[in-house]
Design a binder for these strands. Structure first.
Length: 857
RNA sequence: GCCGAAGUGGCGGAAUUGGUAGACGCGCUAGAUUCAGGUUCUAGUGGGUGAAAGCCUGUGGGGGUUCGAGUCCCCCCUUCGGCACCA
């Protein structure tokens, strides 16, 4: 009886062997081509989930494949280990965030090792260690020196749930991205990083990243939000000041009938007339109190007249200035020229307040009547009532009008971005302290480099209420580094996105103590060749990491313009939701045969959605690994869907993957007789041996190309499955064949290829079978099988015969037959002839080695 | 509203440049193995029709280009994702 496939001892044995061999530790080796494979590092929440399993399995296939292809592969792993959950755990369970975090890391590291991922663990980093975050502080100080980090008082997004500030990117629909609390506005002194300094380059380089998914680039472009237009000064009638507006539609300047300014606009106090003051004040108050509404569409356009008028610099017309609720202080100049005829918002506003509508662009071939318009005309057309520009296309008038404005010194060309500077101050404990000291005499003083790191104190009381937990005398009371007088330490910590904005550089030189990383090593490894992670980081993390890469480049620390050459955004892992009428959402384990295990009531099977704890539609990777092994878990998560698509978790599918590995296993162990002592076939033979040889090489070719060119691991695996199926068919014909027969040798070659080809997906079973085949060199150090091009060439091909575009027959012809030869064969083919007889052949199309289409009348 | 992606059997998904639609897997059906269940092996499996060979039909819907369209073009529908008073 042949040995059964038992995953547990096999996986344990090989994991131990890899560890003992330091199989995956990498160093700079200029004789080999480098390849940096990186997966987004996890937050150590306690356990890995299926999303991690999928993400890291994808990365591991690539890393192992490239290793076998002879590349020098850097494949590191670490921990994004600062962050709120550690503090919440501390508050709830009284465990110190550090203890909680490090114990989670230990647990998750064990889990990742059980998955058999080929990480270079000697490069492991955790962002919550002083060895790591001191470089956050170091980089912060460098940015501060360059003016790229600065402090300002500003209105910030405040999450009452998390009791901290949020970046704009962390506010979704007016709610906190993390805890869904309604975000409030608060005035606070905050540290900012000047990401806007790189707005243009960040945008420009989105056009130079062909290895990124288009949708991620589009999202980033939207976020950066570049608008090209002009700034125009409108003088306030009777005052020696003007209000600057920004517009992308200078062509509509002749159509301005009023001006709208934001409720927070600084000019309001100065320009509002006495008799309008009370009304304006109460309106401004009202707008500020409302905060950010959830659904902008439903909010009515409201405003109030300031009593002031401004002057259109082109026409000299006086138009009223309104404070309007829809004008944003944060964008442009906080003031808008209103052209109701050609802007929908202005149009709505004008209709509410009975303001005039002046048409300056007509649709081609039509004339608009201001009085009867029901909506603004925002498309291109022909200019009217626009002085010298009348009867010209509006698109052509843009430049001319700006020229005119510039001539009159009333404005200039201008570019605006939606991108705001990145507020990084957080009133939290479990983060990287911002290395700054405030001295009454000297003001803001950076902590001197030699005093880094500013260590996060351990003895801090966490209550979850009030402001900065770091506001304790033992931490805050310091001497000023400049004047040695009494001073106060900054109590805010950095947004954890700072930590993850450069960790891929720290992996390169994880141990250096005098710099964040070594320049020459970064020169060798950077940029990351393949980055893999979830789409949820399309803007946040990926934009910040790009910004940091550019900023660090400009500090002279390395030379890469972009951090990640290729980006793969993997889909979510989903599963159907189960609901019991009595117990609500239930875990998959709580449903047996369609019944709830608690009450026996029928279980309602809901929609397939992303796995989430709250909906209980989660599968614990540990359970799957325990039952089926890491190889099966990996294989299924790679086979069920292409990486970028969502994956529906199916226990039946896992069974299928397990069955396949069992089939491969038996292919070796049940055929030891036919395999042992047989020399693999290397070059072509005749007959069935040739077919097997050819199928083997077609498979190698397909698998190689599917991994390398397209990351289509699902089709790569299916190609191997096909070969395995073929070998099962072929196997019985080997009985009685000599060990040195071409058939036996072709079988041996095919089986060995299968074992090597599955190595990136299921490395443990691959190693085990490889050693059973008598090899002592492990698979991870064995070269990937190469394709025998000659074996791909077949002597005969099947040519499909279509009559009038419909498949009617097939014929076998020698490869590369001429049209005349094929025509002759077709005319002897009974079925084909049956369809042609008595009809006139109008056309005979022949695509070599593929298809014949005969058009008959 | 704008931008983007997608729509193929009962299900997950294949189809490289326009050339046999449905590879591979799941599920299902039948047979073999087995005392039996499970396992394993073999075969079948888009729909309609037929005893069968076969024929008809079929990639969200409608048009078009082509000898030939899941694939290219135009219009429409649906789903998902992103952005959304950005001037």
């Amino acid at each position: 009886m042949a040995e059964r496939y038992e995953h547990r001892p096999i996986e344990e044995r090989w994991q131990a062997a890899w560890e003992a061999d330091r199989a995956f530790s990498t160093s700079e080796d200029r004789s080999k081509e480098k390849f940096y494979v990186l997966e987004m590092f996890p937050y150590p929440s306690g356990k890995i989930h299926m999303g991690h399993v999928r993400n890291y399995s994808i990365g591991d296939v690539l890393a192992r494949f490239l290793m076998m292809r002879g590349k020098n592969v850097l494949h590191p792993m670490g921990w994004d280990s600062f962050g709120l959950p550690a503090e919440n755990a501390a508050i709830q369970h009284g465990t110190h965030p550090a203890k909680w975090t490090y114990s989670n890391i230990d647990n998750m590291r064990t889990q990742l090792k059980r998955m058999g991922f080929s990480y270079d663990w000697s490069r492991e980093v955790a962002t919550c260690t002083p060895e790591y975050y001191r470089w956050n502080q170091w980089i912060f100080l460098k940015l501060y020196e360059k003016g790229l980090a600065y402090k300002k008082r500003s209105t910030v997004n405040w999450c009452p749930g998390c009791a901290t500030v949020l970046a704009n990117e962390q506010v979704e629909d007016g709610l906190c991205w993390r805890c869904d609390s309604t975000v409030e506005m608060k005035d606070l002194e905050q540290w900012f990083l000047k990401i806007t300094h790189y707005a243009e380059e960040l945008l420009d380089h989105t056009y130079k990243l062909p290895g990124w998914p288009e949708r991620v680039l589009v999202m980033q472009r939207n976020w950066i939000g570049k608008s090209v237009g002009a700034e125009v000064d409108f003088k306030i009638d009777g005052r020696d000041e003007s209000i600057k507006i920004f517009t992308t539609r200078p062509d509509t300047l002749y159509g301005v009938t009023f001006m709208s300014i934001a409720a927070g606009h600084p000019a309001i106090g100065r320009i509002t007339t006495d008799e309008r003051k009370a009304e304006v004040d109460s309106f401004v108050k009202g707008v500020k109190a409302e905060g950010k509404p959830r659904d902008m569409e439903e909010v009515k356009k409201e405003g109030v007249f300031t009593g002031a008028y401004c002057v259109n610099p082109l026409t000299g017309d006086k138009v009223p200035v309104y404070v309007a609720n829809f004008v944003l202080m944060e964008y442009g100049t906080g003031a808008v020229m209103a052209v109701p005829a050609h802007d929908q918002r202005d149009f709505e506003f004008a209709r509410v307040y009975g303001l005039p509508v002046k048409v300056v662009i007509n649709p081609p071939g039509k004339t608009l009547e201001a009085a009867t318009m029901t909506e603004a005309f925002v498309d291109d057309g022909v200019m009217v009532a626009s002085g010298p520009f009348d009867s010209t296309p509006n698109t052509g008038a843009m430049e001319g009008i700006i020229d005119l404005i510039e001539e009159k010194k009333a404005g200039k060309r201008s570019i605006n971005y939606k991108l705001r500077d990145w507020g990084i101050s957080r009133q939290r404990y479990w983060g990287c302290p911002i290395p700054v000291i405030y001295c009454e005499k000297c003001g803001t003083v950076p902590v001197p480099y030699e005093q880094l790191p500013v260590i996060l104190p351990e003895d801090v009381k966490l209550t979850g209420k009030g402001f900065s937990p770091l506001d304790v005398p033992s931490f805050t009371e310091v001497k000023c580094p400049k004047c040695v007088g009494p001073a106060r330490r900054e109590t805010d910590t950095m947004d954890t996105f700072v930590d993850s904005s450069w960790y891929f550089l720290r992996y390169i030189s994880p141990k250096v103590t005098d710099l964040p990383f070594k320049k020459d090593e970064a020169g060798y490894w950077m940029p990351v060749d393949q980055y893999i992670g979830g789409i949820e980081h399309a803007v946040l993390h990926l934009l910040y990491a790009r910004f940091f890469t550019k900023a660090l480049r400009d500090l002279g620390l390395h030379k890469a313009d972009e951090p990640f050459t290729n980006l793969l955004t993997q889909g979510m892992v989903c599963k159907e939701i189960l609901k019991c009428s009595e117990h609500g959402y239930i875990y998959p384990e709580e449903s047996k045969d369609g019944k709830c295990v608690h009450c026996g009531k029928g279980v309602e099977v809901g929609a397939v959605e992303k796995m989430s704890k709250s909906k209980k539609n989660v599968i614990d990777p540990d359970r799957i690994i325990e039952r089926y092994g890491a190889d099966t878990t990996r294989l299924f998560s790679l086979f069920a869907a292409p990486p970028e698509k969502d994956l529906d978790w199916s226990e039946d599918g896992v069974e299928g993957a397990y069955r396949f590995l069992g089939r491969v296993w038996r292919l070796v162990v049940e055929n030891e007789e036919a395999l042992v002592g047989v020399e693999p076939l290397k070059i072509g033979a005749e007959g069935t041996a040739k077919e097997v040889h050819s199928a083997t090489h077609r498979t190698i070719d397909r698998v190689t190309r599917d991994i390398e060119e397209r990351f289509h691991f699902n089709t790569a695996i299916s190609a191997v499955m096909e070969l395995v199926n073929l070998l099962y068919q072929f196997r019985p014909s080997l009985d009685g064949k000599a060990k040195d027969s071409a058939e036996a040798r072709s079988f041996k070659e095919a089986v060995e290829s299968v074992v090597l080809l599955i190595a990136p997906f299921a490395p443990h079973i691959s190693e085990e079978l490889w050693s059973k085949l008598g090899y002592t060199t492990p698979v991870y150090r064995t070269p990937w099988p190469s394709v025998d091009e000659a074996a791909l060439v077949m002597a005969e091909v099947t040519v499909v015969i279509q009559i009038n575009g419909k498949v009617r027959s097939k014929v076998n012809v020698p490869v590369d037959s001429t049209e005349a030869m094929v025509r002759e064969t077709v005319m002897k083919d009974e079925k084909a002839v049956g369809w042609i007889t008595g009809k006139e052949i109008k056309k005979f199309v022949y695509v070599p080695n593929k298809i014949v289409n005969i058009v008959v009348a």
